[in-house]
């Protein structure tokens, strides 16, 4: 059994196709959608937690890639720029999953990519704009 948080990037040409249906029906994968968006250029972004048997998981990913959907691990999408961070902590009360958290009593900010659900609230809550979204 493997479980990963991933980001699916859909080009405009395939955005209307029912991929999740196939992931469930053909590959027996468990899906938890965290965030979905279609931009004005009709490109889609889907953040989800995907779990299943290792072989099925890999086949499912292969299926997506073969249809032109790009898959990227979530932790590569939200990047905390430690150098830019001023350790002010404004993000830590906004982050809903405590992925951005304050270590006490040192009062330093840390980012745990595994807890991140890429909701993006921190991007604008950070006064120094130290959290970046890379798609």
């Amino acid at each position: 059994m493997v479980k990963h948080k991933i980001v699916l990037l859909f080009p405009a040409t395939v955005v209307e196709q029912p991929f999740l249906y196939h992931l469930v029906k053909d590959y027996n994968l468990i899906i938890n959608v965290l965030k979905a968006n279609i931009n004005p250029r009709k490109e889609g972004t889907l953040v989800l937690e995907l779990a299943g048997d290792k072989e099925n998981y890999d086949s499912g990913i292969h299926f997506l890639e073969s249809r032109g959907v790009k898959t990227v691990p979530l932790e590569q999408q939200i990047v905390w720029n430690e150098e830019r961070c001023t350790q002010c902590g404004a993000c830590t009360v906004i982050c809903p999953t405590s992925a951005l958290e304050m270590i006490r009593p040192e009062m330093t900010v840390t980012f745990n990519g595994e807890k991140c659900i890429a909701c993006g609230h921190c991007l604008k809550a950070c006064p120094a704009r130290a959290v970046e979204e890379h798609y």
Partner: peptide, 11 residues
Amino acid sequence: VPTAPLSSYPK
């Protein structure tokens, strides 16, 4: 209520 400093203690 959770707190956040805005002013950086480590800095």
